[in-house]
Write a protein that binds this DNA or RNA. Structure first.
Lengths: 178, 178, 178, 178
DNA sequence: GATGAATGAGTATTCATTCAT
DNA sequence: AATGAATGAATACTCATTCAT
């Protein structure tokens, strides 16, 4: 198997679980059965590896925001995004954890600044495209609120409340936007 | 002036700005004009200092959730909490940054586990007390949603979008709950 | 109870168990319920405390070597010393541990140099007084051998062999010198 | 030249002279012209280095106890061990100092526990093999006594008496066992 | 592509000691 | 006699990175 790919996979997992700062490359190398030098060879540095991982995870964000514009009403599109979001949140907790992590940590934010901006403006644009058709006047604020709401749900689900009623929240949210 | 207090103040500031993991104690001591040994003397360890700071910041959370039950209707109370939240969010950005940080970082979460649970259950309880009077059947889910929404707003305001329309979001939220 | 005395007692115990270098004064103070400043007040420094303890333990050595010259033959005196030694070795293991420790550790030896020389020349003199009456020509070597033998037994009993047959060793030694 | 080997050599010397606890790794690295990180790389930790050294010094113990079973009587074998022991004691004082040190210091004993037990049981077995042929009934006690005697001599020679008459002690011991 | 020895700056922590009260 | 805040040097250890092979 490709050692480069293996490295990314293991690193993603460990960075998500332990946090970027608290995951030494030695741990990554050990788990990936790979020598230390290989990281610098492929990714130049730890930050380089992080950027590579962040880039890869952007695909998941794209998928969540993919909608069928031709056959769906705006509200159906919104529901589609919500369904995709909750589905991902449950099945790929680590991905969300990783993202929360690197977005908040001041250090990693610096490293990922350009990629993060790219990604968040993509999300905003995609969301706004939907809301534009619902209420063009307030579409920006509503988009921001929509995004914030989902982020907040992810945050509380992942980090804060042990018995977060995700299912009921999902139903309520969908009802609200339907 | 009390060096212990000074230490807490400076550390709070630095931990918020740079993140806990990325703030060496040496930086704290230097800024606080204090010897390294003093941290060990007062707080036992860096984690001990973190816990002390987290404990202190809980007071801000308490203040946000303080409502006048006797003279306010539930909806007025909700508005009160919202006003307090947005006011704090603007005036004390660092506090929110600090909290987001330590709540998401796996390492700090372990250290603060008990304190975080205490705090979050306090917030949930306080919020639910209000929603109980509005819609007792769905009060738990609505409380969670309310909290998540605010957290999401803080997260997006602090971390993700540079031109987050906080003022408009605030107005919209207040209108929604009024 | 006298805090000074309490301090010596606790310190002796801890130094014996953990070794001098590995016993922080903080541990001594905590166990003795005494403030840190008090040690420097009474003993000037950690080394000062060590010297005080070493001085105190010399009394045990004196007791082991106390013989009744008037009513005992030299061989009886030797047996007396042996009996006292083995009795002490069993009842006061910590004392021997402490002594072995500080005698071998290069650092503590420097600190206790004068006291150790005093003590060892005392032991040699006392032992030689007995051997002088048995075989005056070889008394010095025999004394050294006698002392070395006992030290070796203590060392092996305390440190090296878990199932050291102390009782049988004792019988054999006594038979040899009787 | 192999830096790993160099590290062991220098460390052995310094640990012997100053004691394990009193020898900072910085001193070892400086003398060995090696970076601090290299110890961690090769031995994981200071304790790891200690264990490696202890393992290496076991070879000397093996050599002392090597006897020619086929061409020597038991008494000749005993004399052989004694000769080897005294020869080593004079030529390699540091080795004995190191061993005494780590065997008595409570901290190092814990670290070396398994290795020490292995070694001491080896010595006892080898010694008992000889005494079995001399007096099978008391061979265990006699072996213990023999070992203790030698340890005591080393202890007194190295640590306690400045003018220890090693040569005469040696002659007397050999005469005794011959 | 891949290894692993080697580096060195960085970091939390320990701890004896001092000193004002 | 006794306290405890404060110091600062010392120390083991971590870890990303480099580089020769």
């Amino acid at each position: 198997m490709d050692k480069r790919e293996q490295l990314i996979e293991i690193a993603t997992k460990l960075f998500s679980e332990r946090g970027y700062e608290n995951t030494p490359l030695s741990a990554v190398c050990e788990k990936a059965n790979v020598s230390k030098g290989l990281i610098s060879h492929h990714f130049k540095s730890k930050d380089g590896l992080l950027r590579e991982i962040f880039r890869k995870t952007t695909q998941l964000v794209v998928e969540i925001n993919r909608v069928d514009k031709e056959n769906q009403t705006p509200k159906e599109q919104l529901i589609g995004v919500l369904e995709a979001f909750f589905s991902q949140l449950e099945s790929d907790k680590l991905f969300f954890q990783f993202n929360m992590n690197v977005m908040i940590q001041p250090n990693t934010r610096k490293v990922l600044d350009d990629l993060m901006k790219e990604r968040s403006s993509f999300i905003l644009r995609k969301t706004k495209e939907i809301f534009d058709k619902i209420d063009i006047e307030n579409s920006l604020v509503m988009s921001h609120l929509f995004i914030a709401e989902l982020d907040g749900i992810a945050l509380n689900y992942l980090g804060i409340f042990e018995d977060f009623p995700l299912q009921q929240i999902k139903e309520r949210i969908i009802k609200k936007y339907a």
